[in-house]
């Protein structure tokens, strides 16, 4: 049971980051390799506002999300927008450059020490035999609510219909009067807000460390590729599956003989992807794109 709860917590974090990103891939067809650093910027900004500037937690969280949004907008305007029309693979390289710059900045500003937004041991309780803290309950609930709200907007509102139209065919949606460039920006910034939310999640539940960025980028993209590129819900589901596999790998006493060292945990996403590529190269939940 504890493994399932841990998987739910880790999966919610990964789903939050991967969900927005899958939509970006669906619309723009680009990978943002600075995503992990945007996750950290949201977390570190919240940490700084709460622990150093002494602002209330809610204000600090909103500040962290706003910083993430601002940084993502900057990423789009400087490192993506001028390049992706020339070739959709160019942003893959430019965002690697941006991730290096952000890595350096994070190291200079916040040093290599782990930082926690809420210091001290969290109070917990036992639920069906599993230990879970109040903070983790809130974080998982907020994540699920955010994903549900996103689902509602995406599937049940006119904005969602326009988003889906742009995902399916940009040129056709432009001819119907949809302002696709504005939606590009909105979607990209929204993915950054989700990423910053993930950073705040890490900062509250665990510790922020400058070396985390790359790992989260890879996990999010592993979920996107496994889910079928551009399929938001496939990516969210695969994020939970990968988290569950990670927990099972290191938490189970295999054959009553040995435990797998925790250091191997991050190889799970890789093995999962390789397995899926063998069976279904287009991803688990890939759907056909309509074309004229």
């Amino acid at each position: 049971m504890q493994l399932l709860v841990n998987a739910l917590i880790a999966g919610s974090l990964a789903a939050l980051i991967a969900g927005g990103l899958a939509l970006v891939y669906g619309v723009l067809g680009i990978f943002n390799m600075a995503l992990g650093q945007l996750v950290l910027i949201g977390g570190y900004a919240t940490w700084w506002l709460y622990q150093v500037a002494g602002l209330p937690l809610i204000v600090s969280i909103l500040g962290g999300l706003a910083t993430g949004a601002l940084c993502t907008w900057l990423t789009f305007e400087v490192f993506v927008n001028p390049f992706y029309r020339k070739h959709r693979f160019l942003p893959l390289v430019t965002t690697i450059a941006w991730s290096m710059i952000l890595d350096g900045l994070i190291l200079l500003l916040f040093e290599e020490r782990p930082r926690s937004i809420i210091s001290g041991l969290p109070e917990g309780f036992i639920l069906w035999g599993a230990h879970i803290s109040m903070q983790q309950c809130v974080l998982v609930s907020v994540t699920v609510c955010a994903l549900c709200a996103f689902g509602y907007v995406f599937h049940c509102t006119s904005l969602g219909r326009r988003l889906r139209a742009v995902v399916q065919n940009t040129h056709a949606s432009l001819s119907l009067g949809i302002n696709a460039p504005l939606l590009y920006r909105a979607i990209f910034i929204m993915s950054g807000v989700f990423a910053a939310g993930g950073g705040i999640f890490i900062g509250i539940d665990q510790n922020l460390s400058p070396t985390l960025g790359f790992t989260y980028t890879i996990k999010a993209y592993a979920a996107i590729i496994a889910g079928g590129k551009g399929n938001v819900w496939g990516a969210v589901l695969c994020a939970y599956i990968i988290a569950l596999l990670e927990q099972l790998l290191v938490g189970v006493h295999w054959f009553n003989a040995f435990y797998v060292p925790a250091g191997y945990q991050q190889t799970v996403a890789l093995l999962f992807i390789i397995g899926i590529l063998l069976l279904r190269p287009q991803g688990l939940f890939a759907h056909k794109v309509r074309s004229a």
């Binding site: 680009i30 990978f31 959709r88 693979f89 893959l92 790359f214 790992t215 890879i218 993209y221 592993a222 590729i225 590129k229 991050q266 190889t267 996403a269 890789l270 093995l271 992807i273 590529l277 190269p281």
Partner: peptide, 18 residues
């Protein structure tokens, strides 16, 4: 041979990490 170009980019990084 199994992946699109950008997917390969990400997965090859993941293999490196693994």
């Amino acid at each position: 041979f199994r992946l699109e170009a950008d997917g390969l980019g990400v997965i090859s990084l993941a293999v490196h990490l693994g």
